[in-house]
């Protein structure tokens, strides 16, 4: 079963950023290995019911970040030089998941930190 992307169109985070963040996470965590081919822009846009330009922008940002490479006729692939991020402490993994989910909801950094402080004080 291949990895899945989820886009929430009601989120204040633009859809292209949601796609970019999820793909970047999958690549840096090693879930998508080097040279793995990503779906064509048109196909992914059709599957998500989004405009082609939205997915194209996400791919472009990933390319600028050096995470993927695009070649005419060869599609978009995970870049060779991407090294999976070093193994995280379990607490860091939980924090990563929390921050990702909160950002997907459109929370600001202050709101994320405030919520953590509140939970720490309550516990």
């Amino acid at each position: 079963m291949s990895a899945q992307l989820r886009v929430d169109t009601t989120s204040p985070v633009p859809p292209y950023e949601q796609i970019r963040a999820q793909l970047a996470h999958l690549i840096t965590q090693g879930a998508l290995p080097a040279r793995e081919r990503l779906p064509p822009v048109r196909q992914l846009a059709a599957d998500l019911g989004l405009a082609v330009g939205t997915v194209a922008r996400a791919y472009r940002e990933l390319e600028l970040a050096g995470l993927v490479t695009s070649r005419r006729g060869g599609g978009t692939r995970v870049a060779d030089m991407v090294r999976p991020a070093p193994a995280q402490h379990p607490v860091e993994q939980l924090a990563t998941a929390y921050v990702t989910a909160a950002r997907r909801l459109g929370a600001s950094d202050d709101q994320v930190l405030t919520a953590v402080h509140k939970m720490l004080q309550a516990g």
């Binding site: 079963m1 291949s2 990895a3 899945q4 992307l5 989820r6 886009v7 929430d8 169109t9 009601t10 999958l26 998508l32 081919r37 990503l38 779906p39 064509p40 196909q43 992914l44 599957d47 998500l48 019911g49 989004l50 599609g75």
Partner: peptide
């Protein structure tokens, strides 16, 4: 509102 797609290449 929420849409999903798998990272497959057809």
């Amino acid at each position: 509102a929420t849409r999903t797609a798998s990272l497959e290449v057809r």
